[in-house]
Design a protein around this nucleic acid. Sequence first.
DNA 1: CGAATAATTGAAAAAGATCAACGTGAGTGG
DNA 2: CCACTCACGTTGATCTTTTTCAATTATTCG
Lengths: 205, 205
Amino acid sequence: MAEAFSALERIWTDLKKPAKSVVFRQGESADFIYFIQSGALRLDYQLEDGRNLVLDFLWPDRFFGIVENEVYAWSAIALVDVHLKRLRRSAVQALTQDYPGVMDLLLKQKTASLMAAKNHIILMSCPTATSKLIGFLLDYSKRPEYFDRTTQVLTLVMSRKDIADYLGMTFETTSRIFKYLETRNYIKKINHRQIQLNTHMLLEA
Amino acid sequence: MAEAFSALERIWTDLKKPAKSVVFRQGESADFIYFIQSGALRLDYQLEDGRNLVLDFLWPDRFFGIVENEVYAWSAIALVDVHLKRLRRSAVQALTQDYPGVMDLLLKQKTASLMAAKNHIILMSCPTATSKLIGFLLDYSKRPEYFDRTTQVLTLVMSRKDIADYLGMTFETTSRIFKYLETRNYIKKINHRQIQLNTHMLLEA
DNA sequence: CGAATAATTGAAAAAGATCAACGTGAGTGG
DNA sequence: CCACTCACGTTGATCTTTTTCAATTATTCG
């Protein structure tokens, strides 16, 4: 796997994107595969009826844009300034000939996507908005980049609407549940984007 | 791809399972990969709190049980009598050495799983139970094995509870929405498991 | 046939959406 | 640096949808 990685190193190029910028858009020709070095992204799926759905949040060390199709099935948007590696799909394809490990790596990454999707489905199936949001916060707190274990402070890189679009609710409900969790001392809002978690209590709930 | 398939043919064994039988259980050692020849299955995920979640319904020509982990992450249950092909994981692994197409096939199947999951997420994000169920019926009606295009009759191989557990609602709601759709002439119940669809109207809704 | 399982239906309660108004705070241009 | 603006977030009141719990009816399978 390390060997596959060093093979990929020879064909990737560094790429920095500012917060809120679009890495690729749903429907665009899928010429590149990406890897997140640092930062965070949101995968958006635009429905015909105008609704926008957040399919996933992406964190460092994840590949994305791996599809068999001609075009991207969803959009990738930077939530904060991101540092990416970009690989031309055709070049990756060529590498798989000499380095079977590259194929293994792609398969592993696809498995990671599938597990993320499974987790997303589990969250969405929670019977109440409160349990959805608690599940979301607990998952999120596993990201070392945005959760400080010593202070228990979680830095939200996404808006209330992003969370709502991920969990299948309205942003008003998201806001109200945050409020409710604070009154019950499950969380403490430092500011809109900084939340101190009472992990122990959240796990109990 | 055809070459990969014929390679697999040499190592798979036929397997028939009756309706309601368990093909594998969540947590069991994941020694086999399966392929559905005919019939239909349900993938169940058991949560610690006792809830049961339907992650997917599987139709013919799909591989399943493809995981990297030691154990299956969910259970597979036959909804009707099924005809399966069973392949020992280690044998498939060995085949990938000589037949790179086998790897491609596994990757393609994983992509299929991911697309199914994406679709599932889209359904679950529908704002009302009615739109969820309509989306479900329309997706389901793409299965030639269970939808008769001439009579427009859909044969449900799963219970109201299975549908509810798939869409994230209660089975009472599922039942009520079926009733509602019938009063509005979107559907016509032949019996509990046979539903005639007014596809045109459903697509409009 | 009869027991067990699945499906339906009703009434009441709870949860969430909607619509509207109001704060708040980060970023911009003077 | 300050005022302004605009996007984001919060909150309230009302209405709709869904759940819950309970009872009843169908259906299936031994």
